[in-house]
Nucleic acid binder design. Structure first.
Lengths: 141, 141
DNA sequence: ACCTTTGAGTTACCAAAAGTAACCATAGGC
DNA sequence: GCCTATGGTTACTTTTGGTAACTCAAAGGT
């Protein structure tokens, strides 16, 4: 990695960050990024998107089993929110017992790519974070 | 865009998602992605990272002004968490009144790129989401 | 001398969100 | 006629987030 390239990249990244957090003053509401992060920026949404992205579609209880630790209520709430935002499609089959399938929409798929980046980062830097936590833990103790 | 390329990409993305959510069974704890998303996957953390990423460093109150709507308490809590995870560096200058500067660490910078992707996605798809919400709003009402 | 201001927090208190657990509808099988 | 399975909902509790008041320590005004 040449230094100049790295520097240029760093500046670009900073500019990108600036652009995102800049509120368009003529916008009727607050900046869309802020609004959207409010909605999808929570662990259950991100995890749901990742799990739905890893297959074609999943039934409610199957998804619940896969997202370890999520409660039934939180799963319904999360899926409903994702549905109203157009990220997840909910298909009900009129059978008994009922069968409901959830899948990412096109919009959801496009988000998936970004979430995967986040996931990859987490996987890659988990050791560094664990180390930082331990360092800090010592200080706090 | 050729169809085959798109298809290949879609498959790759799915595989990537699968990899991320897969818990290494020999891992002592739960999957790192799960754990890390728990921490950084909330709106205040993501917004803090974006704002800190847009400059060299920011003082506490300056950051507070920029992250519209965050409370003093939540900002301290969020920054502390980011600090213990090694994403943010906190520098205290022994002055009166006190001066405290926050900046992304190298680790934080590396996360910034992924968060920006998320932000870009939000900016790009805000209209689509708004439309979806309206469609759903009608149904619910 | 005393009061105010300033920055970066705490602390105490209250509202909102998330977690827990029990309940529901329906049909098929035993 | 009772139990199971599925995909929820409802009532209740606990945890989290938001609001507002207080703190510390020095400088500056009066």
């Amino acid at each position: 990695m040449e230094v100049t390239t790295a520097d240029t990249q760093a500046t670009e990244i900073r500019e990108a960050a600036k652009k995102i957090i800049t509120v368009p003053p003529d916008s009727f509401a607050l900046c869309p990024v802020r609004d959207i992060l409010d909605r999808i920026g929570d662990k259950w949404s991100l995890l749901s998107i990742l799990h739905l992205g890893s297959t074609d579609s999943l039934r409610f209880n199957e998804l619940r089993k896969r997202i370890t630790g999520i409660s039934q209520r939180m799963l319904t709430v999360t899926l409903r929110a994702l549905e109203t935002d157009g990220l997840v499609a909910r298909t009900v089959y009129a059978e008994v017992p009922p069968r409901v399938e959830y899948a990412l929409t096109g919009l959801g798929q496009s988000l998936l790519a970004a979430v995967i980046e986040l996931g990859n980062w987490a996987a890659a830097h988990a050791p560094a974070i664990a180390e930082a936590r331990e360092r800090m833990g010592r200080v706090a103790a």
